[in-house]
Design a protein around this nucleic acid. Structure first.
Length: 429
RNA sequence: GGGGAUAUACCAGAGCGGCCAAAUGGGGCAGACUGUAAAUCUGCUGGUGAAUGCCUACGGUGGUUCGAAUCCAUCUGUCCCCA
């Protein structure tokens, strides 16, 4: 199956410049996607783009991931209602390092001719002088053209700085630079990137494309739809915010749980976009899911594959075990018999002796005693207990003033549940 | 530069000088039902407390008043109109 067909049935194709299919059929093609270092880690919002590169490579083409060390210093106005604050250069540098490391996990870097590459646009922008850039890139586009972009138009009312206005020029120049130096013919991205990407193809066309074989050397754009949820809320956020790919920021357990909790209405889309299952496999899984929806076969399939890709098979196996353990009626006994490796994946929170000393009752313990992990205030903790939401060692507790004389598992742990989805293990040293 | 409007909790958005910790909607959390799903219904949604209460909060500062989210002055931000 070729790349475009693959994207089509997966629902990952939003738009592309005509002629791309011919180009891809003709030869091994090089494509890139840019990632902005606005945070020290990628999050699952970036994962769709990564999958795009992944499929591209699996179809025999060469993917390049670009880390926006330079563009990150400017700020992409796409989809942003207001001007943003700059990130400090130190932050940006640290973010670039982190993101680059993560990108390297998802693609094949030793696959011969179509090995993946990671580049950083700071490398070619750092030497650029302002005058040089104006002559080299700025001359090829009119302000009229740049103003017609959606990302700019939406900001004309409220204002956009020259800096953010120029962003598309930088990203456009990236494309040109890679076109020249690495023979990159295609830039991909989310649908919000269409404007920025076509700025790039436009620069290439104007700088390069005036002779007779111009169509032979054309540059292309391809975008993927933004992943949305059936209920209209934003995909990729959990209760505690972004779902990160970095295990330090979102634990593998929480990561797995995020996917496992996907709504039935969303999961057919998720499995197509975020996993490599074939069409036949997916249809089979969907059939099984429809027969026994309570088993959540699709959710498990997505959660397992994505967690494996991001955190590795070993960790994934452990968090699956950890998940079934925590939700089991026999959780207490199972924790008592758990291996050290498994314990390490459980959501364990150490209760500090100083905080514990201040706790008079259960309410105190699950608010201030856990450093506000479970509840940010005693009032909320008390209300939750009164609302029948809290269990200790799988037994519901409804008295906010319950004394802290629960029997600890292994003489050390207490299993606290809030609602039916959230479990915490408190550790007392 | 001149004139006008506006600033309220996570967001939107009411608010009579005392009955305002502040209507309503959304969002969020929880309960029931389920399947760690969706929909629905119910409760909660500033802090502290068992509670009458107390504390902190309606852009900032200062004032009027027994009493201010509400009136006055001033500053700041935002929006609109004119130049």
């Amino acid at each position: 199956m070729n790349f475009i067909e693959e994207l089509r049935w997966r629902g990952m194709l939003q738009d592309m410049i005509p002629g791309l299919e011919n180009q891809l059929a003709k030869e091994m093609t090089v494509a890139y996607i840019g990632f902005d270092p606005t945070a020290p880690s990628l999050h699952i919002g970036n994962l769709a783009a990564i999958m795009l590169l992944k499929h591209f490579q699996l179809c025999g083409h060469k993917p390049i991931a670009l880390v926006g060390g330079a563009t990150g210093m400017i700020g992409d106005p796409s989809g942003k209602a207001a001007e943003r604050e700059f990130l400090s250069e130190d932050t940006l540098r640290a973010n670039q390092v982190g993101i680059q490391k993560q990108l390297e996990k998802f693609l094949e870097f030793h696959a011969g001719a179509n090995s993946a590459e990671v580049v950083n646009n700071y490398d070619w922008f750092k030497e650029f002088s302002f005058l040089g850039f104006l002559r080299e890139a700025g001359k090829f586009l009119t302000v009229n053209y740049m103003m017609s972009k959606d990302s700019v138009k939406k900001r004309l009312e409220t204002g956009i700085s020259f800096t953010e206005f120029s962003y598309q020029l930088l990203q456009g120049y990236d494309f040109y630079h890679l076109y020249k130096t690495k023979n990159v013919r295609l830039q991909m991205g989310g649908s919000d990137q269409w404007g920025n990407i076509t700025t790039g193809t436009e620069i290439i066309r104007r700088k390069e494309g005036h002779d007779e074989d111009a169509t032979e050397r054309a540059a292309f754009a391809l975008t993927t739809p933004l992943v949305t949820k059936a209920d209209g809320t934003k995909f990729g956020k959990s209760e505690s915010g972004n779902v990160w790919l970095d295990a330090e920021k979102t634990s593998p357990y929480a990561f797995y749980q995020f996917w496992l909790n996907a709504a039935d209405a969303d999961v057919p889309r998720l499995i197509r976009v975020f996993t490599l299952y074939t069409k036949e496999q997916i249809e089979e899984l969907e059939k099984q899911h429809a027969e026994a929806p309570h088993l959540r076969i699709l959710q498990k399939a997505v959660a397992e594959e994505v967690t494996t890709r991001v955190h590795g098979a070993e960790v994934c196996a452990l968090v699956i075990e950890a998940s079934s353990l925590l939700f089991s009626k026999d959780a207490v006994e199972l924790i008592a018999g758990a291996s050290d490796a498994l314990l390490a994946q459980l959501p364990i929170h150490e209760v500090s002796a100083t905080l514990l000393a201040e706790c008079k009752n259960l309410t105190d313990l699950i608010s201030v005693g856990t450093d506000n992990l479970i509840f940010p205030s005693k009032g909320e903790a008390r209300k939750a207990i009164q609302n029948n939401a809290i269990s200790v060692n799988k037994v519901k507790v409804t008295d906010p003033n319950a004394a802290l004389d629960f029997e600890k598992i292994r003489g050390q742990y207490l299993l606290v549940g809030n609602g039916k989805q959230k479990n915490y293990i408190l550790s007392f040293k």
